[in-house]
């Protein structure tokens, strides 16, 4: 059983990242924005660009929708999560089987609520004031998350109002998200 548990722990690290599932950050004020996601892959000249809409509020929870080049929808409210695939099919996500749900919840809700205390447990947090707003740099502490992510940079116009998220992967890949509050036209970063 020791062997089993040791392996379980190790794989738990892999599967879950370093973010705690039961952590419930403060629910941020309602936030809604369009975004452009730009993903650069190593050895790939052309970045992959997609567009979408993000909204968070206390009653409907977290909603992440890709509108182009295909349609994809992810919704999470409390422990319930579901996604609608590009082929139109819908599947429920079991938090037990998808520990990344907690990670996503932690990063997004933590960032959107302006609560960096929760993040400090897992990241080295460096905040730099900007002319308007601030830039938060999250460097994963040694551990599983640091195996996949080099750093995450969040640029906020005000605490809890992200404008841009920039994720550098250890593989050399890069993921950039640029948010535009609903009503404005987003542009690729």
């Amino acid at each position: 059983m020791t062997a089993l548990r040791a392996a379980c722990t190790a794989l738990c690290l892999l599967a879950a990242g370093a973010v705690h599932a039961a952590t419930t950050p403060r629910v941020p004020a309602a936030f809604s924005a369009r975004f452009v996601e730009t993903r650069s892959l190593p050895g790939f000249d052309t970045p992959l660009i997609s567009h979408g809409v993000l909204s968070v509020d206390a009653t409907r929870g977290f909603r992440w929708e890709i509108t182009a080049p295909y349609h994809y929808l992810f919704e999470m409210n409390g422990a319930q999560a579901r996604e609608q695939l590009p082929d139109g099919s819908v599947r429920q996500l079991d938090p037990e089987q998808a520990p990344w749900l907690a990670a996503v919840e932690q990063i997004f809700l933590g960032a959107l609520s302006g609560n960096t205390v929760q993040l400090q447990r897992y990241f080295e947090v460096h905040m730099q004031p900007l002319a308007q707003g601030r830039q938060i740099t999250l460097t994963p502490r040694p551990g599983p998350l640091s195996q996949a992510i080099v750093r995450i940079q969040v640029v906020e116009s005000a605490p809890g109002r992200p404008e841009q998220i920039d994720i550098r992967e250890t593989s050399g890949g890069r993921l950039q998200l640029r948010f535009t509050p609903t009503g404005a036209s987003p542009t690729a970063p």
């Binding site: 295909y70 994809y72 695939l85 590009p86 996503v104 990063i107 998350l145 996949a148 992967e169």
Partner: peptide, 15 residues
């Protein structure tokens, strides 16, 4: 496409 679109991509390496 789902892997690219899903917010899960924030916590893992797509490549």
């Amino acid at each position: 496409a789902v892997s690219l679109a899903s917010p899960a991509g924030l916590t893992s390496s797509f490549d």
